[in-house]
């Protein structure tokens, strides 16, 4: 194996831009009063956790080469179901969370079926599912904005495990699950197959990967994690709102932004769940820096556009060089420090 090149150059910066982003945001926080208080850190990470789950789901799907637009609605429906089951049917919390997550698995299976069997493009299939889920949500809780308003477990998720640690239990669970998923994606056969299917579907199929099965697993993982996150968020904030995220900055948009900032390849096959997570933490702190929603939108948009432009132009340059003179491409790779 070649020695890993740890030169501090443009490529290194680019590969770790999520960390760079986090550092800059935290640095900017020094100029802000009351920014690094335990209360602030606790509330910022807690309130930002829902989007971390969505980012997790979105990233898994994007690695598999698909887009999952349902993430936001799955999590809202799961939150509604979880709180609704507890307050209406009186089921214990664990069962509620389990049922909500099963709902997520079901949605994931349907998504997977639509994409792999009916061969509908994932963007369109999940778009249609979005409408269906919205309808289901309104049918489940007619004329009531928040059917669940249950604060019995709210304290538990808000509190922290170790006294003095400024993180809520909810955020810690989020982090834990994301680390587990990361290990799964990197070190298990299925996880690596997801990368393979996303990178090149045909090659993966020729190599004997059951591509349909793997794609479905990616969708199920995505929906299930969003449902679990949504259910936990419902308990964390104590209430679920049917129109969650329909106005203002859509959580889906933030998840997409963070996925791109985290360096996940838009075409699939490359990316890391952890990087998305890091950039989502950074986005959460960024939102605490700017109190005005307008500025939040603008700054997030500028960063997203900068990342897309960067990726696109890099790709464009590569396509200019690639194939015309193979050696030139090697030279190019060497120059950017990847040779």
């Amino acid at each position: 194996m070649e020695r890993k090149n740890l030169k501090f150059n443009g490529s290194f910066l680019n590969n770790n831009r999520a960390y760079l982003f986090l550092i800059i945001v935290l640095f900017a926080g020094i100029f802000r009063n009351n920014f690094f208080t335990a209360f602030n850190i606790n509330s910022v990470t807690g309130n930002g956790s829902l989007v971390m789950w969505l980012g997790l789901g979105f990233t898994i799907c994007l690695i598999a080469g698909h887009m999952d637009l349902t993430v936001q609605y799955v999590s809202t429906l799961a939150a509604l179901m979880c709180l609704g089951l507890h307050s209406r049917q009186g089921l214990p919390w664990l069962v509620c969370i389990l049922i909500a997550t099963c709902m997520g698995v079901l949605v994931g299976l349907i998504n997977g079926f639509l994409v792999t069997k009916l061969k509908i493009h994932s963007f369109i299939a999940t778009l249609g599912m979005q409408f269906v889920l919205r309808g289901v949500m309104y049918m489940y809780s007619p004329e009531e904005q928040s059917i669940g308003r249950d604060y019995s477990a709210n304290e538990a998720l808000n509190g922290s495990l170790i006294p003095g640690l400024p993180f809520s239990l909810y955020f810690l669970i989020t982090t834990l699950v994301i680390v587990i998923v990361m290990v799964f994606m990197r070190n298990t056969r299925t996880g690596r197959n997801i990368y393979m299917v996303g990178g090149n579907l045909e090659t993966a199929w020729l190599a004997g990967v059951k591509s349909n099965q793997v794609t479905t697993i990616a969708f199920v993982l995505s929906s299930a994690s969003c449902a679990l996150g949504g259910a936990l968020n419902g308990i964390y904030s104590g209430a679920a709102n049917i129109s969650m995220g329909e106005k203002g900055i859509a959580p889906l948009m933030i998840a997409l932004t963070a996925t791109i900032i985290g360096g996940t390849d838009i075409a699939g096959g490359h990316g890391s769940v952890l990087n998305t997570y890091i950039s989502l933490v950074a986005v959460a702190f960024l939102r605490a820096l700017f109190k005005k929603t307008e500025m939040q939108v603008l700054v997030i948009a500028i960063i997203l556009i900068a990342c897309i432009c960067y990726e696109t132009i890099a790709q464009y340059r590569k396509s200019k060089v690639l194939g015309t003179r193979p050696n030139l491409h090697l030279e190019y790779l060497k120059e950017i420090g990847r040779g």
Binding site: L114, A125, G128, F131, V132, L133, R134, G135, M139
Partner: peptide
């Protein structure tokens, strides 16, 4: 309820 119908028709 229209949403659900629209979604299914769309799919």
């Amino acid at each position: 309820t229209k949403y659900a119908v629209q979604g299914v028709v769309f799919l």
